[in-house]
Nucleic acid binder design. Structure first.
Length: 502
RNA sequence: GUCCCCAUCGUCUAGCCAGGUCCAGGACACCGGGCUUUCAAUCCGGCAACAGGGGUUCAAAUCCCCUUGGGGACGCCA
């Protein structure tokens, strides 16, 4: 089936022989033990896109077998994050906690067929053996103490785990759609635990049973699962189920080069990244931008950087998924977000901006005025948080003037300039963007030798408190005559009062 | 430690499977310039990489081997 002479990790062919006709069914299976991890989202996206591309089915399965750590709040958060990103599933969510009977039935069947056995070794004994193996520098595998015991001689009443009776014959490799040809080390194929001593099924067992039951055709998941795969494959076979195709995607790393970890959240925060999807929402990223960025992290389509959702659903493929881990780069994410901001509809942005303004104590309505402001601000901001910050002076007079700018533009003679401007604006008709520009050009000819900048900068400083802003004429028109004049007056007072200080 | 995986600019990547068109292309960031009422946006230009060493070949970023570096997995977690 595979050219054994070829050692290069050539990607396995997408569909091989008998699997040609099987419908594409993929799943995303997060465990609800906290917020949705950004690496998890990327896995979800790849699965989702793969399903869309092949006209398949995307299934959501909540892996909540760990009853201690799983919470319904976490499930809600995961659902909410997926909704935010517009990653819709076609089936589910299924909850493993509600599928106990299925696992139990499979367990009984394996036991009855002699493909699994009860193990009475205690956790302490196993721990000791594990440590000993470690001391002797051996790789620990279960020593099969309980494997050959006659079931009738089982010690009664003692708790037991159920172990998989690993067959001796195993394939020497498995095919991975991303990683290629992965060798299977028979030494690592041990009699792993299917069910804990409290009767609950383990992850590796549930995954196989569920994936088989749900007729999953392609298992697309993180690279950290490759080592589980051979064991799972053996279970599929023992159960007589068809083995799905596997695609292990490279993990997402932090700037330090190691796997993103929830424990390093503080460190990441300082660098502008996070492991939590919801945090990106708070930071003012657009879901489409995050989706685009995460997809491009590890997948590419020539030189294209920005994709519409439709393009992604049409173009995504496993062939162009790289094999090496990707590092989260906040600068690139910010740029992608800006691209989406610029493409966004002004009214839509206004709607999105309202809560971010509220965060800053600005109660604004998503009206036409705000839409106009968004239109001006969108190429200047990278995130909604930045945009809200930039919008400040449209709602409140500048709380202070930038010091350096004031030294440069608020010299004593500027007071006279501002006074002339004010006098002109008092009777300007119409008080519009265009009207203002015309008036300013005229004034500049008269007052600053035609240098519009010399006139505009002090006025801009008076309006915004800084020297960087969208078109000054737009700002004044939005503020209106009264507020414009009021700010001009405030600036004059500032100059007259502080002129000697600087 | 054992096993597995990975390796092109600082980062994301194209190119690799089908060796020559690659003194390696794009993007982010950074630097310079144009445009401009400022700042953005935009346009033009610049800096910057095939980890190292051996092979194979007329020819290697591309194929093979080794070394080095990085990552991941080694649970009655998922």
């Amino acid at each position: 089936m595979f050219a054994t002479c070829c050692q290069r990790r050539q990607k396995a062919p997408l569909a091989g022989g008998d699997q040609m006709t099987a419908p594409v069914r993929v799943r995303f299976a997060p465990s609800p033990t906290g917020y949705l991890h950004i690496g998890g989202v990327r896995t979800a996206i790849f699965n989702y896109l793969f399903a869309r591309r092949h006209g398949g089915t995307f299934i959501l399965r909540i892996e909540d077998t760990d009853r201690q750590r799983s919470t319904s709040e976490a499930t809600e958060q995961i659902l909410d994050s997926l909704r935010w990103l517009d990653i819709a599933f076609d089936e589910g969510p299924y909850f493993q906690s509600q599928r106990g009977e299925l696992y139990h039935a499979h367990l009984q069947r394996l036991l009855a067929e002699g493909k699994a056995y009860r193990c009475y070794c205690t956790a302490e004994e196993l721990e000791r053996k594990r440590r000993q193996a470690e001391a002797e520098k051996r790789t620990y595998v279960y020593d099969r103490t309980c494997r050959e015991r006659d079931p009738h001689e089982d010690p009664a009443g003692r708790p037991f785990t159920v172990r998989f009776r690993m067959p001796d014959e195993a394939p020497d490799h498995f095919a991975d759609l991303i990683m290629g040809h992965i060798p299977i080390d028979p030494a690592k194929l041990d009699d792993w635990i299917l069910a804990r001593s409290d009767g609950s099924p383990t992850y590796n067992f549930c995954v196989v049973v569920d994936d088989a039951d749900m007729r999953i055709s392609h298992v697309i998941r993180g690279n950290d699962h490759v080592e589980n795969t051979p064991k799972q494959i053996m279970l599929y076979r023992a159960l007589g189920y068809q083995v799905p195709q596997f695609a292990h995607m490279p993990l997402t790393h932090g700037p330090d080069g190691s796997k993103l970890s929830k424990r390093r959240e503080e460190e990441y925060r300082r660098q502008g990244i996070s492991v939590s999807v919801q945090e990106y929402r708070r930071m003012g990223y657009l879901p489409q931008a995050l989706f685009n960025y995460l997809t491009r992290l590890g997948w590419s389509h020539g030189d294209q950087e920005i994709f519409t959702r439709e393009e992604l659903e049409q173009l995504f493929d496993l062939d162009h998924v790289g094999r090496s881990a990707g590092v989260m780069n906040p600068d690139k994410l910010r740029w992608v977000n800006q691209q989406y901001l610029m493409q966004s509809d002004d009214a839509e942005l206004a709607r999105l901006l309202v809560p971010f303004l509220a965060e800053r104590g600005i109660e604004a309505a998503d009206d036409e005025r705000l839409s106009g402001i968004c239109g001006q601000l969108k190429p200047r901001a990278h995130t909604l948080v930045e945009m809200a910050a930039m919008a400040n002076y449209f709602f409140k007079p500048p709380p202070a003037y930038d010091e350096k700018a004031a030294r440069k533009w608020f010299k004593p003679e500027a007071a006279g300039l501002l006074e002339r401007v004010a006098a002109e604006l008092e009777r300007l008709e119409p008080f519009t963007d265009a009207g203002l520009e015309e008036a300013f050009r005229r004034l500049a000819d008269e007052l600053t030798a035609g240098k519009l900048g010399k006139l505009a900068q002090p006025v801009r400083l008076a309006m915004t408190g800084t020297t960087a802003s969208p078109s000054l004429f737009f700002i004044m028109a939005v503020l209106g005559r009264d507020e414009t004049l009021a700010r001009l007056e405030r600036a004059r007072e500032f100059i007259n009062g502080d002129a000697g200080v600087t």
